[in-house]
Amino acid sequence: MTLAIPEDDARLLYCVPDAMKFLSIKSKDTIYALMRTGRLRSVKEGRARKIPASALHEYVALLEREAGEQQ
């Protein structure tokens, strides 16, 4: 499974609303909870939290591994 980040999107850091869109998560609270628990890596840029593109891919890979373990 490949994350649906557009090919022409060369950003390295994503804001929370963009991460929500890419991960199909409907709640900011869910994204912040994932960051707080360490399941989704983030960095601080000024006062804002940003999610590295690599962290989005790592999170999807984590979900796939967990799904495979449950089968």
Rank of each mutant, 00 (worst) to 15 (best):
M20G: 01
S24T: 02
A10R: 11
E66G: 06
M1Y: 06
Y32H: 10
E64F: 04
I31Q: 02
R49S: 15
V60I: 15
A53H: 09
T37D: 13
A55H: 09
E66I: 09
V43W: 00
S24K: 04
Q70K: 12
V60C: 13
A53N: 06
S27H: 07
P6Y: 07
A61Y: 10
R65M: 11
C15M: 07
I25M: 08
A48T: 07
V16C: 06
L62G: 00
P52L: 10
A61E: 11
M35K: 01
L3R: 13
E45C: 11
S54L: 12
A67G: 04
A10T: 15
L13W: 06
S42H: 12
G38S: 10
L63I: 14
Q70V: 14
Q70W: 00
T2N: 15
I51A: 08
L12E: 14
K26V: 01
D9N: 09
K28H: 04
R47W: 02
E58K: 04
T37K: 12
L3I: 15
A33D: 11
R49I: 01
A4I: 09
G68L: 12
H57A: 10
G46K: 02
E64Y: 01
A33R: 14
K28C: 00
L13G: 05
P52N: 06
P17L: 03
Y59R: 09
G46P: 11
E64H: 00
Y14K: 01
D8P: 00
Y59P: 00
L3C: 14
G46F: 03
R36C: 12
L12D: 13
L13I: 05
L63M: 14
E66Q: 14
A10D: 15
I51W: 03
L40K: 04
R39F: 12
I31S: 02
K44V: 12
L62K: 04
A61C: 01
A53G: 07
L34E: 05
L56Q: 06
D29R: 03
C15L: 05
I31N: 00
P17E: 04
S42N: 10
K26A: 05
A10C: 14
S27Q: 12
V16F: 08
A10W: 10
L34N: 08
A33K: 15
R36S: 15
I25E: 08
D18C: 01
E45W: 00
A19F: 03
T30I: 05
R39Y: 14
S24V: 01
L56H: 05
K44I: 10
E7C: 03
D9G: 02
Q70R: 13
A19L: 05
R41E: 14
K21R: 10
E66Y: 01
I5D: 11
